[in-house]
Write a protein that binds this DNA or RNA. Sequence first.
DNA 1: CTTAACAACGCAATCGGTTGCGTAATAAAA
DNA 2: TTTTATTACGCAACCGATTGCGTTGTTAAG
Lengths: 338, 338
Amino acid sequence: MDKRITIYDLAKTLGVSAGTVSRSLNDHQSISQKTKDRVISKANELGYKTNKFAVNLSKQKSNTIGVIVPKLNSNFMSTLLAGIEKIANEAGYNLIISQSLESTEKEIINAKTLYDSGVDALLVSLAYDTSNFDHFANYIRNKIPLIFIDRVQDLTNCSNLIIDNRLAGLEATEHLIAQGCKNLLYIGGNLKRNVYSERLQGFKDALEKHQLDFNKTHFLETNLNPDDVESVTQHIVNIKKPIDGLFVASDNFAAHIMKALKKENYKIPQDIKIVGFNNDPISELITPTLTTINYPGYEMGVLAGQSVISQLNGSIDLHSANSITLRHNLIKRESTLK
Amino acid sequence: MDKRITIYDLAKTLGVSAGTVSRSLNDHQSISQKTKDRVISKANELGYKTNKFAVNLSKQKSNTIGVIVPKLNSNFMSTLLAGIEKIANEAGYNLIISQSLESTEKEIINAKTLYDSGVDALLVSLAYDTSNFDHFANYIRNKIPLIFIDRVQDLTNCSNLIIDNRLAGLEATEHLIAQGCKNLLYIGGNLKRNVYSERLQGFKDALEKHQLDFNKTHFLETNLNPDDVESVTQHIVNIKKPIDGLFVASDNFAAHIMKALKKENYKIPQDIKIVGFNNDPISELITPTLTTINYPGYEMGVLAGQSVISQLNGSIDLHSANSITLRHNLIKRESTLK
DNA sequence: CTTAACAACGCAATCGGTTGCGTAATAAAA
DNA sequence: TTTTATTACGCAACCGATTGCGTTGTTAAG
């Protein structure tokens, strides 16, 4: 029970070569069924376990997929990961997960570590302010599948998995306008990231389309962090022309803002209507329930998983699908009732 | 740039043996500083990268830690993971994360897969109804550090990381009683799991201590799943002697229940007071804010990480710390106001 | 009966490090 | 100057598979 038995042990007891054992175990065609059966049954009998380390070295691949996300403890990210994990697991791949904690430096380190660990592919959702992408060069150079999810960047030979954030932003904003809002405010994250800048674009599009004016007072760039609630609230309270519609790029942050506004005696949705983003579980548990954009995190994870797996299997050619866009939809709830 | 260079390449260009190169790179004592410097600078010059696969095979260890959690997409679990990841990462370990999806079968498969992958240690939070633990036998037999977190089980030579759930349950319940509740209900998850059975124990302790009677109508065993909300609500609504105090073993589920009760025109906390568990962010965003037990998930993750690392480093002896209990505390909020 | 064509397996190199042990070279002690 | 330690490396086995190529025993075709 102590000594792990190897293919050599099997070979010796069976009177065949190690190569034959290996091929039998892998169901290679050039081995007779009879021999395969003998090998396999003996393997089971002796409790043979293949040593992945040796396999990895020999094949120069690890059967693991690396993942870098900004934070593990966010509903969207953990849901996304749940989807990825499910698919990867079913396909026999392990997931090595690391978080950048929104720091480019950590992202760089993680990318390097995962590269050194020999992951077969890498899935990335970028940190807030990553603007240089050299840390992915090794992956691209060595043709290791690299897929960006949600927080993406266009790099050659990498695919992106996104939703149409601009359209979603447009729809969210138009909904607010349709509900009678005249003076809107967009609250997003770092504008370096596609998700936040594109949602802002959609926001602008809507204002323009409905001939509402747009200037610097109509959007705030924040970290979507509870620490920012105070200043955001002050901005809303102190602004001369009262804001009656809020589009927040995150449900969670929207919930915080909503709480703060209620404390300031705002009535929602009477005084101010709010649209969030993501459709986090929290959005329908708070009072009033939050209108939001449904962002299918789990489905996106599943798709990301399937995409990687098929790239690894060679069943998809890298250049064919450069970008996959998932469907989103607006979910109307109490926070924007007329 | 294409051909990875190996220690043999280095050895050849430097006119030394591969062994010397290896030892130099690992700062072995038996190599002169001069030689080390030569090797290292040449290694950098040529862009040498150590091949982890070879190292793994040679050392029979992978520098990765396996983790099995019930679900990735729960606030507590993802927060826990965030803590673990931080420590593991700092110590140079990778994390292979998998989810059992509350299924024992998947847990078994995951345990086996991770074992085969050669993880150096395993962290586990058990699935709902796991009651057989043979799938961890290999770890124990081979002295691979095995640590249970939150959802634990006493196995020889494994450590547990928990809070005092029974005491927490007692405190939560006593708080309800102190606020005037006379007829309490405990809503928990599968009683096979320590966390839920112990919280129930604490609940019972409190009732007994305050001479309130306890019978089967005073607790519900559920899956803490949104699907269960309906039946739980019906139970509360239809019970003869009205319930005025609720202790729910999960904030998230408590939030769902609260919403359903409000729909049934219950006033909280006037008609019924509620205490949750975990101190999820949601607990202070809902209306009314939820009294809860603060469960330090991140700290627990950090501790779990540190514990594994020190076991791997041999700086802790397996048998010394069999169980670590973290501090919890009751956070009083609006849902239990008198 | 010969020979071509397979089928079924053995050989041995290879993947890229790690490490116990042996030894040459230099230094210190006798 | 010879002996004894030490220091600094080299040798080669080892970790446990995978795989290209060559070889043998059979079978079918000529």
